Simulated assay, not measured.
Amino acid sequence: MTVHKSLPLTERWAQSYQPIWQPDVVLLSSCVILMLFGLVMIASAGVDVSEQLFGVPYHFVLRHAIYLLIGTFAGLIVSLVPTAFWQRHSPVFLLIGFLLLVLVLFPGIGQQIKGSRRWIDLGPVGFQPSELVKVSMILYVGAYLVRRRDEVINSWSGFLKPVLVLALVVILLLMEPDFGAVVVILGTILGMLFLGGVKPGQFLLAMFAAVGAVIVMALSESYRVQRLLAFRNPWSDENVYGSGYQLTQSLIAFGRGEWFGVGLGNSLQKLFYLPEAHNDFIVAIIAEELGLFGIVILIGLYCVMIHRIFRVGRLAELQENLFGAFCCYGIGILFASQAFINIGVNTGLLPTKGLTLPFISAGGTSLIVSICLIALVNRIYGETLRMGHRV
Rank of each mutant, 00 (worst) to 15 (best):
G158H: 02
K161P: 02
G115D: 13
S157Y: 09
S155E: 11
V152D: 01
I138F: 07
T188M: 13
L166D: 05
L193K: 03
I113H: 09
V102E: 00
L101G: 00
S157E: 15
L132Y: 15
V133Q: 05
L100A: 12
L190R: 10
V152I: 07
M137C: 14
D178R: 08
L132I: 11
L195K: 07
G126V: 00
G142K: 09
G201Q: 06
G110E: 08
L103E: 05
L101I: 01
S157T: 12
M175G: 08
S116G: 12
Y140F: 15
M192F: 02
D121Q: 14
P129D: 07
G201V: 04
P177T: 12
P129R: 03
D150S: 12
V141R: 07
V133G: 12
D121G: 11
L132S: 13
L160W: 13
F127W: 13
L105P: 00
I109F: 10
Q128G: 06
L172W: 02
V104Q: 04
I153C: 09
K199D: 12
P129E: 07
W119D: 05
M137R: 07
V141C: 03
L103G: 03
L122P: 10
S155K: 10
G142V: 02
I113E: 11
R147C: 00
A181N: 14
G108S: 11
V152M: 03
L195S: 12
W156P: 00
V152H: 03
P162I: 08
L174S: 09
E176F: 04
R148N: 13
L122Y: 10
I113F: 11
L101A: 01
G115A: 14
L101N: 07
P162M: 12
G158N: 05
S130P: 06
F106W: 07
W156C: 02
P200W: 14
N154H: 15
L172A: 09
Q111C: 00
V170P: 00
M192C: 06
G108L: 11
V135H: 03
V135A: 14
Y140E: 02
V125S: 05
P177G: 15
L173F: 04
L105T: 01
D121A: 15
L190A: 10
L186A: 11
M137E: 08
W119Y: 11
S116W: 00
V169I: 14
L132W: 14
R118C: 08
R117L: 11
Y144V: 07
A167T: 08
M175V: 04
I120C: 07
L139W: 12
I153Q: 15
I138K: 04
G115M: 13
V133W: 02
P107V: 01
Q202F: 03
A181S: 15
Y144C: 09
L174C: 11
P107I: 06
I171P: 00
G191P: 02
V125R: 02
L166W: 03
G187A: 09
F127Q: 10
A167F: 14
L145Y: 06
G158I: 03
F106M: 12
V135I: 15
F179A: 03
G187T: 04
L193C: 09
S116P: 09
G142Y: 06
Q202L: 06
